[in-house]
Amino acid sequence: MTAQKFKIKTIESIDFPLVEFKKIISFQDKDYDIEKGLNDQVIDIHNIEINESTVLPLRQYSKSMNLKLIPEWVENNAIQELKKVIFDNEIVEETVVLNIYLLCPDTKKIFDLKKISIQEINQNKQINFDEIKLDEIEEKLIIQSNFTRNIGYSSNHTLKADKKSSIIATNREIRIYTDEVDAPGGDYLDIGPYELENLLFKVEGGFNGNLKRPKFLYHKAFDKYFKSGDYYKSVQLFLLMGLVIFSDYNLKWILLSEEFDQNNSEHMPVLEFICKVLNIKKAEFMEILELDQNEKLSKYLEITHTLQEKIQVNEINYKSFFQKLIKSELKDN
């Protein structure tokens, strides 16, 4: 007898975005506005390019910003989709409301919530968030929006949301970066953007190259995606796999090149990273550095396999990351 699989259905909701926003960012007493279209989900304003020759850090340029959002339906039949998740005798315009709010995850600040009626979408209506103080934001501001029931409904229909404030659709979030985001390698690894023409990535240096500290270069066209890597699963997966190769280059460089300097404050973090992955003490690893070149080579051959395995169960568990990714893809399909 084979086990049967049941799909348990919870409350009906729409799992694709119904609304996108045009965005206009402006600053008090300044003539400079930033306009972004419906599909811009990641906006980096940590540097303000006032003109071709002048770029100012945002926090020097202004203490606050204003944000205008103009909602537009993504699909022509969006209202029909909303009708499916409310009750037959209800009218979408009276039952459903669009909520928009801004939040900063680091400071745990949520700015005012705006409730927009359905009739106001696609009417070029501007939703204004004025005088957002930049000192209440650290790193990024996230714009979130969803559709909820604005009124309750008494029903025995178990699959339809009937309570006030039930979420029936969630839109895509938009991220506005107000501060420079650390490069993907953090303090440990030299990872950065570069003009690579038709290549996606390239590892430079190491032991087999010019004996210089390895650099992991990715095509600069993808810089903004790499710097907001936690937002893109594709980037995360790429970096995880790239890290396996890159860590090995670094291991080789530390053990076999003469350039590695224990007194160099930029070199030591790389060693610390390798120790962290291998879960060995720094002092223990330093002892290997004292061996002669042949012994170090055989140590490298021994450690490289361990490194390849341990990196998969270090801070991020590769297997469960992959499982979750597959699961979310199955859900999307």
Partner: peptide
């Protein structure tokens, strides 16, 4: 998680 309660009124919080 399927309720949007960040601006929920006192009544919702009391009852639910």
């Amino acid at each position: 998680t399927n309720r949007f309660l960040i601006e929920g009124n006192e009544d919702i919080f009391r009852k639910e």
